[in-house]
Each structure stands twice: as structure tokens, then as C-alpha cells.
Design a protein around this nucleic acid. Sequence first.
DNA 1: GTAAATGCAAAGTATTTGCAAGCCG
DNA 2: CGGCTTGCAAATACTTTGCATTTAC
Lengths: 148, 148
Amino acid sequence: MSHHEHHKGSRSLEERCAAAGLKMTGQRKVILKVLDDAEDHPSVEVVYDRARAIDPSISMATVYRTLNLLDELELVTRHDFNEKFSRYEVNMDHHHHLIDVESGEVIEFQNDEIEAMKRDIAEKLGYELVECRLELYGRKIKKTGSMN
Amino acid sequence: MSHHEHHKGSRSLEERCAAAGLKMTGQRKVILKVLDDAEDHPSVEVVYDRARAIDPSISMATVYRTLNLLDELELVTRHDFNEKFSRYEVNMDHHHHLIDVESGEVIEFQNDEIEAMKRDIAEKLGYELVECRLELYGRKIKKTGSMN
DNA sequence: GTAAATGCAAAGTATTTGCAAGCCG
DNA sequence: CGGCTTGCAAATACTTTGCATTTAC
């Protein structure tokens, strides 16, 4: 299944923003739709491009301001995958990322054992876990035997 | 024990750099010493300040160039702890970080179970684990009962 | 109507780089 | 000596911001 079909209560970003009291301007709607539709982890630049494809009047500043706003509201998550810019993703279910070091492809995964272990480790160090970031960087394993 | 007393074969950064064929200029020696002595995870700015305290002629550009060089040689590790700048750390034993969200304090930890699990997850996704990044962000737990 | 949001351009930060001069090996 | 290093300042790259204008509610 496509992983961005609003599992989380089936509320679109737009609905969640409206609920937060944000004014729904035309530009905002477009940016939110772009984010909602994204199946990847777009950079600001990419969000900007996709938004402009719908409404060319949208400015970079608005994209930045909107993303910062959404980040503060915790409606999106900002990622720094060892690049010089940020990537964004709508905050749906909690998960981590495996980044293909060769292609840059990002794969999402989730693992309950890891979740428990993280909380455990933090606790043992005297901390309550507030947030966390786990990124695996890997190289695709070539299958041997069935060489196609 | 202080964790930077050269466990890794007891070789100082300077020795490891010389072995890599780098020219040992005065500035470089100072920067390497600053890094070797650091018990924390200093930003470029901090490395710069500490280096200048020893030799005021050292420039920011040199600090940046040196850190990039060391990073390429994998003699230091660059971290992005959700700040707008990078922090560096001498590459000793493998470990992860717990960052105190209130004070910014960074605590190092290591856990074999997590290591195994990481490799496992990557493999199940068809990847060979090349690198990884695990950061826990937490809030210090206040002890109840013994209120001091 | 009013506060919030926008576009533009200018400013800000962190980092990199071109170039002439300096220094290690 | 020759090439790696350095300092300086200018250039980059990403992001933020001041301000006048527009817009949602």
C-alpha cells in the first residue's frame, strides 16, 4: 500500500493545519498538497518546484516559512541526511530511514524491538526519551547465484 | 576513565596524520592537539577558538580545511546534532549519542544488541550496513523521593 | 477591519575557494 | 626546490528577515 494515504486518523495536512488555526491561503493549500502527495522526502527546493508547477506565484520564502511552521507544529519532520540542505516529510507513523549510499534512495522501516531498546537505553542513562533519530546507511546486496 | 587517552592503538591524531602522508605544519599540529584533547564534541568555531588560544595566527579556513581532510581520512567524525553547524569528534571507538534537549550536553553510549539489530534490519531490507547514526534526544529524569 | 501571510530583495550563517605567499620534506 | 598549506577575502549555498502589500476570516 502507498504509505501516505492518511493512516493517522485520515486527516489531510490541510485539515490538521486548519485545526491548528492557520489561515488557508491559496499558496499554503498548494504547498500542503505537495507535501501530502509526496511519496519521497523532498528538499525545500523540490517542494518549491512542485508547488510552482501548480501555482507559479509561490515564492521560496513562503515555502521556507511554511515548512518551518509545519515543523514547529510537528506536522512535518525535518531531516538532515548528511546533505547540505534539509528534506521534509509529513509526520505520519513513526519510523526510521535506511539511505542507499550509492543512489541516495531512502527506505523507511520500523522495528518495535529497537523502539523498546531506545527507551531502555535512555532510561538507564537517567533520561526520558523525547525524540530519536536512527539512520542506517547501506549498500545494496547483490544476489549471488541468480545472476540476471 | 577519561575516554580519550588513545585507546585505539595509542596513536595520536598527529601520528595517524603523519602516517597518512600529511605535512605537519605548525597550524596543523595545534589543531590536531586541540581535537585530541577535546573531551567534548566541539564545533568548528570552538576548535578555531581553542586553536587560536595556542596560536593566534591560525585562520578559520585552515580549521575548515583540516577538519574536512580528517573527515575524509575518517580520522574524525562529523556530527549534525540538529544544530545549524557541525560538531567534530576524534574517531575512536564506535558509539552513539544521547543529547540532553535542555542543556545540549552530549552523552556517549554503546550497546551490542543495537549493533546486531542494525545489521539485521539492513540485511532484511537487502542492504549491507555501511554506516549508521543513532541519536537519542532526552530530558533528564528528576529523581522523586529524595528531593534535594 | 485586522492580524496573519506573502513576495521581493536584502541580510544572515555556515562553509568553500581562488590566489598569492609561505613552509615542509 | 616543488608542491602541499596557509591567510585573506571574496564567493557559495542554504535559510531567514524587513517591509510594503495582499488576503483570510
